[in-house]
Simulated assay, not measured.
Amino acid sequence: MTITQLKYTLAIAEHKNFTKAAEKCFVTQPTLSTQIQKLEDELDVIIFDRGKKPIELTDVGRKIVFQARNIVNEAERIQDIVDQQKGFIGGEFRLGIIPTVMPTLLPMFLKNFIKKHPKVKLKIEELTTEEILTRINEGHLDAAIAATPLENETIKERVLYYEPFVAYIPDNHRLKDKKTIEVSDLEIEDMLLLEDGHCFRDGVINLCKTFKDQAEDSFQLESGSIETLIKLSNEGLGMTLLPYLHTLDFREKLSPNLRHFTEPSPAREVSIIYHKSELKMQIIDAMHNVISGIIRGAIAFQNVEIISPLSK
């Protein structure tokens, strides 16, 4: 068997279609099909059930794919070892970023990073934390930027910065006259939240000490974007909490609605994360240095209390 055959196998397992897998691998479908047939003949097993639509793995096929992913990942790391030995910072680098970090952090560091390291070919995706962990463990991402700590034994974390929570309080809200707020002021009943799947939502819920299982008729409104939460808050539907970087470009009209917490400010920890066996450390180090250098000028808060992003 060959590494190429194993790569074809992984592509079919991912796309569940021979034609799509061939396009992904930049070969013709007959070429891909022939190689898979040769692999099955050599192993004397059927890896894919071609009678199903979409194509499914057989029981033994699932075990082969699991091992093939490990073999292909390790083979690709040979080039990483050479690059690291030479001090070369370049090549493809697949990066995931969570939705509540992507729109604020990416514009801050991307141009600077590309200018400093033009040989790195970045491929960036906006993904939830759950999607990021899956893709890192499957070898589809080299690293990611997410809220931590994640308490995952296969993942290493390097802190980039601590980002305080900031309250957005509309004019008609019970807390509108307070210059700063306490965590004890928060009530989940009048809090607008991001929809399920966002780790920032879980951080807000963990912060609200008064949070309990709500009655079925309790009002609760959720949205997929922070911008929508702000608009809903302006309509008098409740308050919301924002990551600090989201407030830096607030229009003058909206700024008076912001309230900071008394210290220690509740904050989230944002880190660059990667698999414990990752070898593209020269690129990870470079990215960590660029982001850390830029963010120091934007966030000066030191006295913070880290709020867990994990659902509890």
Rank of each mutant, 00 (worst) to 15 (best):
L133D: 10
F66A: 15
K116D: 15
I136F: 10
E40T: 01
I36F: 05
E138Y: 13
L39H: 11
L57P: 08
Q79I: 01
H140T: 05
L95R: 03
M102I: 02
L43E: 09
G139V: 04
R50I: 09
E151K: 02
I36Q: 01
L110T: 07
Q85K: 06
I97S: 02
E74T: 07
V101R: 00
R69D: 10
G91K: 00
D83S: 04
I145L: 11
V65A: 10
E130S: 15
K121A: 11
I81V: 09
L43M: 14
A143E: 12
L39W: 04
V65R: 10
T128R: 14
T129S: 15
E76V: 00
I36K: 01
K123H: 14
F66S: 14
E92M: 03
K116P: 06
V82Q: 12
R77M: 15
E74M: 10
A75T: 03
E92F: 00
E153H: 02
V72L: 06
E76P: 01
E126W: 11
Q79T: 02
K38V: 00
R135D: 12
Q85I: 03
F48A: 08
H140K: 15
I47L: 13
L127E: 13
V65Y: 07
L110R: 07
E126Q: 13
R50H: 06
T148E: 09
A144Q: 09
A146M: 06
V65Q: 07
T148G: 08
T58V: 10
L122W: 12
D83I: 00
L43P: 04
A143M: 09
R135V: 05
Q35I: 03
I97P: 02
Q79K: 07
E130G: 13
K53T: 13
P149R: 02
H140P: 04
A75P: 04
L106V: 05
L133G: 10
I136Y: 10
I89P: 00
F48T: 04
F48C: 10
L95Q: 04
F88H: 03
A147N: 06
K119T: 13
K86F: 02
L57G: 04
K63T: 05
K53N: 14
R94I: 01
M108Y: 07
D41I: 00
K115L: 11
L106R: 02
Q84G: 01
D41F: 05
F109L: 05
P99V: 00
E151R: 00
I98C: 06
L110M: 10
E76L: 07
T148S: 14
F113A: 11
K63E: 14
I145V: 07
Q35C: 08
T104F: 07
V65L: 09
L39N: 10
K53F: 12
K115A: 12
E76K: 02
L122C: 13
Q67M: 13
F88C: 01
M108V: 10
H140Q: 13
E56D: 14
I136D: 14
E138Q: 15
